[in-house]
Simulated assay, not measured.
Amino acid sequence: MKFDNPEDIGQLTPLWEGERFENGRPKVDEDILRRMRKITLEEAWGPLWNRGYTFQFEGDFKIMHPEQVMVGRAVTAVMVPKRPDLHETLLDYGHEQENRHGFFNQWVIDSLVEDDVVVVDMFDKIHSGTYVGGNLSTAIATRTKRGGAVIWGGIRDNQQVKEIGGINVYYRGSDPTAIADVTMVGMNVPTRIGKAICMPGDVVLGTPAGVIFIPPHLAELTVVQAEKSQVRDVFGFIRLKQQVYSTAQIDAAWNTALWQDFIDWFNHDDAAAEYRHLSWDDELEDARKREHDGPRSDVRL
């Protein structure tokens, strides 16, 4: 086996058609990451759930900075309990064949670049399962700038880590012991985090409610749908305060007249300025089609 193998990563992420890192990891555009920082977890969850991605969220974490949103591209790792023959084989292979230095967790952190997030399955090990402490968290902050870590296991040096700016850490618990008796069996491979699965290159969105892993090929769609939901809410709140429409009208499928009112507002009101990269052609066409076809006779149960 090889760690961080481009052929394996490419095989595991065939739906991604965009740019990749040298190791084959999908490289979601920086603009998508920037826009992702402004959406809520529920707004990201909906498009994934509706497409069958129902195991992307995990909320059972302690959070170093609960008030701080974290967004980045996943670099994954899978750890297992130490078995001496496997441990020595893989550690020696990394040192001798791949020229890696230090322990397994250092290999992963040494690979990080800007906007990365470390995502590690430590099989919920906390005592002697502390994947990062003050030094490695500082290295994460230096390398990723705005990233962080999601660890299904432990951390140490909490007081030091809390003072590090620019990153966030989601973890299961803390302990003063150092990492021990664990072996890495995969780097940038499918990784289980509680009830969720994360793949290399997934967009990691960390919020006060927990973490959601967004497949790279759905990242842009997720952001666009979230932004459309946000700006429609802004319009809806305004018109409800003005008593132009009822809540039933705002919450139901909009007719063409309401859509035209929205689009006129969207094109001219300062409140919509940051959303003007969005297009509403499909929504307006759907409304026209519904009106042309008339009310449906069938009922969806």
Rank of each mutant, 00 (worst) to 15 (best):
T177F: 07
R100V: 08
Q243A: 10
I179H: 09
Q11S: 15
V224A: 05
G24F: 06
L91H: 11
G129Y: 09
R51V: 02
P295W: 13
T222W: 08
E274Y: 05
V71T: 06
I39M: 03
E283Y: 02
L240K: 12
G133C: 05
I109V: 10
D4T: 03
N168Y: 01
S297D: 14
R232F: 12
I193T: 06
I250N: 09
E22K: 12
R25L: 15
P66V: 03
S297F: 15
V169A: 07
E163S: 13
A74P: 03
M36S: 06
L12R: 08
G148F: 03
Q11K: 15
D293A: 14
A252T: 01
E291N: 10
I164H: 00
V117F: 01
T247E: 15
A271T: 00
F104W: 11
P6Y: 05
Q242M: 10
A149D: 02
D293H: 12
L218D: 14
E291S: 05
L48N: 05
Y53T: 06
D286E: 08
V299P: 05
H292M: 15
I214R: 07
V299K: 11
A178S: 08
M187P: 00
T54D: 11
I238C: 01
Q97T: 12
D233L: 15
A253W: 03
H127L: 15
V234H: 12
D269Y: 01
I197L: 13
G294D: 10
Y131G: 04
V169P: 04
E114A: 09
M187F: 04
D115P: 01
K38N: 15
Q230L: 08
I9W: 04
F237I: 07
E283G: 03
T256F: 07
F3M: 11
G52I: 13
K62G: 14
L205V: 07
T142E: 02
V224L: 11
H268F: 00
W280F: 15
K82A: 15
S137D: 03
G165I: 03
G186F: 06
D175E: 10
R25A: 14
S246C: 08
E43N: 03
A287M: 09
V211N: 04
R232G: 00
A257P: 00
E227K: 14
T89E: 15
G18K: 07
G133T: 04
H127M: 14
E283N: 06
R276G: 15
T13Q: 09
P14M: 10
Q56C: 14
G133V: 01
S229E: 11
N50C: 10
G18W: 07
